[in-house]
Structures are given as C-alpha cells and as structure tokens.
C-alpha cells in the first residue's frame, strides 16, 4: 500500500503541476492576445459545454459520482499506508528495534502448532492484539483454550516487546459439536 500511495502521490503531483502551468499559460495568453486564444487547450469549447449543462443533468451527476469514488479510493489508500511494525524494547539509547506483524504471527503460530493436541492454527498479530485460531480433534475448547492462552502469553513475555499485546484464543474442535 505504501508503494501504491507513493505512486499515486507522484501522479497527483504531476497532474497538479500540469494543471497549474496550463491555467497560468492559457489565462496569460488570452490576456495578451485575445484573438489568438486558445493556445493549447480547447477551453472555449469546454466553456460552451458547461454553459449548456444544468446542475441536475445526468452527465454531471455521473461525473460527480466518479469523482467522489476516486476521492474515496485516495482516502482509503492514504489511510491504509500507515506503518504496522511492532515495536520492541530499545537495547540501548538511540537504537530502535521493530519487527513485522507477520513475523510475530509466524513466531506465535509455530509455538501454537507445536503444542499437544493442536492440529492447526492461524494467527493474526499486531502491536496491540494477537488472535489465535486453533483447531484440535482431541481436546475441547474448555480445556485447550486456557492452556494455549497461558503458553502464548508466556511466549510473548519472552519477546522484548514494548507492550504486551492482549491474547485471544479461539479453539475449533469437533468435540464441542456433540
């Protein structure tokens, strides 16, 4: 997403610079030589079109909806481009350490899968929350969940995290369906 925003921002910057330059150029040319206008853009044609188009005409509404949609895409992309790194404690002054959420999730996932009676697990991790979804064919949620929560918490205590994320465990077991 961050690369996409950088690309978007480059395109937007180029569009803004071009629009500004063309605006200044056309207005100045028209001022200097009213008979020679337009210089590059067929703006008298645009003026006539806009002069004949009412605010409630369908083409204008479609254009407005498209513009609004594009604006929403920009907002979503800019919002999603934040950094999601998980901060670790500083081993010394002036040394910042982080790890990626994916790496943390992988660490927790390996740990959970290595536990007894766990057949599979999916983990999503962030700096605030770690969610574990484990499957087990042998143990019911009642027994397995406290055990997994405790062991994942112990594992996270061992990682020098700035703040320990809350752990939530869900166990999916056929034993609970009977």
């Amino acid at each position: 997403m961050r690369v996409f925003v950088r690309l978007l921002s480059t395109v937007l910057a180029l569009a803004l610079a071009a629009a500004g330059a063309l605006l200044a150029l056309e207005v100045a040319w028209h001022w200097w030589r009213p008979a020679g206008a337009p210089l590059l853009l067929p703006w008298p044609g645009w003026r006539d079109t806009l002069g004949g188009l009412a605010w409630d005409s369908p083409p204008l509404r479609v254009a407005a909806i498209v513009t609004g949609g594009a604006g929403l895409v920009l907002l979503l992309a800019a919002g999603a481009a934040r950094r999601r790194e998980v901060p670790l404690r500083e081993p010394a002054a002036g040394v910042r350490v982080t790890t990626s959420p994916r790496a943390l999730a992988r660490l927790v996932g390996q740990h959970v899968r290595a536990q007894d009676n766990v057949t599979g697990a999916t983990v999503t991790a962030g700096s605030r929350k770690v969610r574990v979804r484990a499957t087990s064919t042998l143990e019911a949620e009642q027994q397995l969940r406290p055990r997994l929560t405790e062991s994942v918490t112990a594992l996270l205590d061992d990682v020098p995290l700035v703040r320990r994320p809350t752990v939530s465990v869900v166990v999916d077991s056929p034993k609970d369906r009977r």
């Binding site: 480059t10 500004g20 200044a24 150029l25």
Partner: peptide
C-alpha cells in the same frame, strides 16, 4: 488566475 496557476504549478513540482 495566473497567480493561482503559478502557485499550483510550483506546489506540484515541489511535491513531484
């Protein structure tokens, strides 16, 4: 209009 155009162009180039 000319001033606004020049300003936009400068802003766009700086951003680019």
């Amino acid at each position: 209009a000319i001033a606004a155009g020049v300003l936009l162009a400068v802003l766009g180039l700086w951003w680019l």
